[in-house]
């Protein structure tokens, strides 16, 4: 089975985000960019499937600016076999919206015929949580979102999902789309030999036009603003005082 893993280049989760002066978005120039952490988990899961003999090939795909090839190389250094870069923007500030990404991914799926698409449940830059679901709708494939555990059982994927009330386990027939949650696994470090090998692994470069997908944004960002600064804390002398203060504030 072939596993396709879409990976997104996003602002590194350690970076303190700065809003651009004109409010049009977040400043991404000269900022450390990394693979979306949920996508890292998806890559890790794909590698584990391969190590367990349940997958033969892992193809990673990234849609965005040319620099996303670094994100792909990182996935290759972790252990993916092959990469596809779909250049769909020139400016690092251009975000390709989930629907456009899903449409391009649907075309890639058509070409690659994977048995499983493993995606992050959302990207940490704009938290859309939509691409996997949209891809499922376009392809008419089963979907299992927010996986915290997964296994392959014959031609089905058995996925435990984190839902509000607890855990839910479902079985979906493959080909399917699984989007992964934080607790599924802990991604590995790229080893030195794999970092060296990554530069020799194939990376195909395409454009959005090659797939005939219009990536023009449908959404307009009206305003981006900093979260309100946190008010200073206070020290309380005892548990009783703490409870009293919380009651005062209407918190309990």
């Amino acid at each position: 089975m072939k596993v396709l893993v879409p990976v997104k280049r996003v602002i590194d989760y350690n970076v303190k985000v700065r809003v651009k002066a004109d409010g049009s978005g977040v400043d991404l120039a000269n900022v450390k960019m990394s693979m979306n952490p949920f996508d890292e988990i998806a890559v890790e899961e794909a590698i584990r499937l391969k190590e367990a003999g349940k997958a033969e090939e892992i193809v990673v795909v990234s849609i965005g600016v040319k620099q996303a090839q670094e994100t792909l190389r990182t996935a290759l250094a972790m252990g993916a076999d092959r990469a596809i870069l779909v250049v769909a923007a020139d400016d690092v500030h251009t975000d390709i919206e989930p629907l456009a990404v899903a449409k391009i991914l649907a075309k890639v799926v058509e070409e690659e015929q994977p048995g499983l698409v493993l995606a992050g449940k959302q990207a940490i830059d704009n938290d859309m949580n939509a691409t996997g679901q949209m891809l499922s709708a376009i392809l008419g494939w089963s979907q299992a979102t927010f996986a915290s555990e997964m296994g392959i059982d014959g031609d089905s994927a058995v996925v435990t999902r984190e839902v509000d009330g607890g855990l839910q386990t479902i079985k979906v027939k493959m080909p399917a789309i699984v989007t992964v949650d934080l607790r599924l696994n802990e991604p590995r470090y790229a080893s030195l030999p794999n970092i060296m090998k990554a530069k020799k692994k194939p990376l195909d470069e395409k454009t959005a036009d090659d797939y005939g997908v219009d990536v023009t944004p449908r959404l307009e960002i009206v305003k981006t603003s900093e979260p309100a600064a946190r008010a200073a804390g206070i020290m309380v002398g005892s548990v009783d005082e703490l409870v009293a203060k919380l009651k005062e504030a209407g918190a309990v």
């Binding site: 670094e70 190389r73 990182t74 470090y189 790229a190 030195l192 970092i195 990554a198 530069k199």
Partner: peptide, 12 residues
């Protein structure tokens, strides 16, 4: 990028 990956691994 390779140097970054290597340093990320060592740092991590």
């Amino acid at each position: 990028h390779e140097q970054r990956m290597l340093v990320d691994t060592v740092r991590g």
